[in-house]
Design a protein around this nucleic acid. Structure first.
Lengths: 226, 226
DNA sequence: TTTTATTTACTAGTATGCAAGTATGCAATA
DNA sequence: TATTGCATACTTGCATACTAGTAAATAAAA
């Protein structure tokens, strides 16, 4: 592994190791199928095996790692069905939220959303896919918060982890311009206070997010569970 | 605590301790706010602190426990907003699933669902609320499986844990007869291949599940996060 | 009596040693 | 050459010792 974490030894180390590993996994730095080792990570970080072990347990709970007793700990390969499930759930929930929001969207919110889309356009102009992924997340989060359902978004965040790994891996193959256009359609639905229109735009948007999944799973089978 | 777990020492003990505690929490045997202790549980089970500690970590990941360093481990009180979020997500997802299912429901499935409802009626006739909770879970799960989305249901299971604790606590206050009637309405929607009808029945059903939440949170504030 | 220190008995966090299972390379054998 | 047996070096699971922090009871002082 490349980087070294910044451990603050005045705080508990286990959660810090967890955060560090989780970030590395989601960013694709630790690719699916990688083999970890309690001892190895412990030496690298400068702590004992114990906190590392606890971090592994939490990663396993998240579905990001897999402990094979007496064999080793591995970064979980991506499950296509888990990714599709996460997408389906996102579509169901976010289309409900956007319909709620269409009835109550005010000018202040609409202005803020226009501004977000503007920022996204800047990112695409600079061909900065990674920034766009971050902005895209913020856009969807903002919609949930505006609907008064921030807690719902926090739950979705956890589910999205599998999708996020995929997005980082494939960040360069997105047709970002198209996605931004879809964001604009969603906002138009809100502006017209048209729940059905906003919902349809949202569903279309989220359905296309994984359009390239079949191709990726064909070209990079090592990332996926067979 | 009352019961003792059945530990199979030829298998890993940590997961068994986890399952045991999780079950006790969901059933309300370990009520919200209870104080646990690694040492105490370890002695009771007959293992060292280590596997118990690992079980606590997983329970914390599930949002069922809360470790306060150097102070103790507590069963998390129920967060009303978390319960409401879980309900909203369930409604969004299950109404999408039921709409998908309405187009493809065959006689075999409908017969099976009728049979499930029959079983539920038997439970209510015996005034067996706990069995009904289990059957209710199975009914909704069956719908997800029939829609070809078992993986989606597995995800919902995790979210439902907060709702489930509440259900066990309040099992006696439910108007079970009414819930069974709503199940029947859902099945009628499927039988008529009417997605809109099935969806409306499902939404009504899931909205009423928490009707008594305000009253419970008033009468038993010790179970909830303020 | 009230307030302040101090002791004592807890808690979880971490380090470490040992046990048991697994993979791998090498040597002996067919 | 191909296969088997074994030594060795791993892996994680668990038990234990120790640390540091917390809380509450107790003792000392005002």
């Amino acid at each position: 592994m490349s980087m070294q974490p910044n451990i603050d030894f005045t705080l508990s180390t286990a959660p810090q190791v967890y955060e560090w590993l989780r970030d590395a996994i989601l960013r694709g730095e630790l690719p699916p199928g990688s083999r970890l080792s309690e001892t190895e990570i412990a030496n690298q970080v400068g702590v004992s095996r114990q906190p590392v072990r606890e971090a592994f347990i939490r990663l396993t709970s998240d579905g990001l790692a897999e402990v094979r007793p007496q064999r080793g700990t591995y970064i979980r390969r991506i499950s296509v069905s888990a990714v599709l499930s996460a997408r389906l759930i996102r579509e169901a929930v976010e289309s409900d939220l956007i319909r709620m929001l269409a009835e109550q969207a005010d000018d202040r919110l609409l202005a803020r959303l226009d501004q977000e889309i503007e920022e996204q356009s800047v990112a695409v102009a600079r061909n900065d896919a990674e920034t766009f992924v971050r902005l895209d997340d913020r856009f969807h989060r903002l919609l949930a918060v505006a609907a008064g359902q921030e807690a719902v978004w926090e739950v979705l965040e956890g589910l999205k982890s599998q999708m996020n790994r995929l997005r980082y891996i494939t960040a360069r193959t997105f047709d970002i311009q198209k996605l931004i256009g879809q964001h604009a359609e969603i906002v138009e639905g809100l502006r017209n206070h048209d729940p059905a229109l906003a919902e349809q735009a949202m569903r279309r948007h989220l359905r296309e997010l994984l359009n390239d999944l079949p191709e990726i799973s064909r070209s990079r089978p090592e990332l996926f569970i067979p």
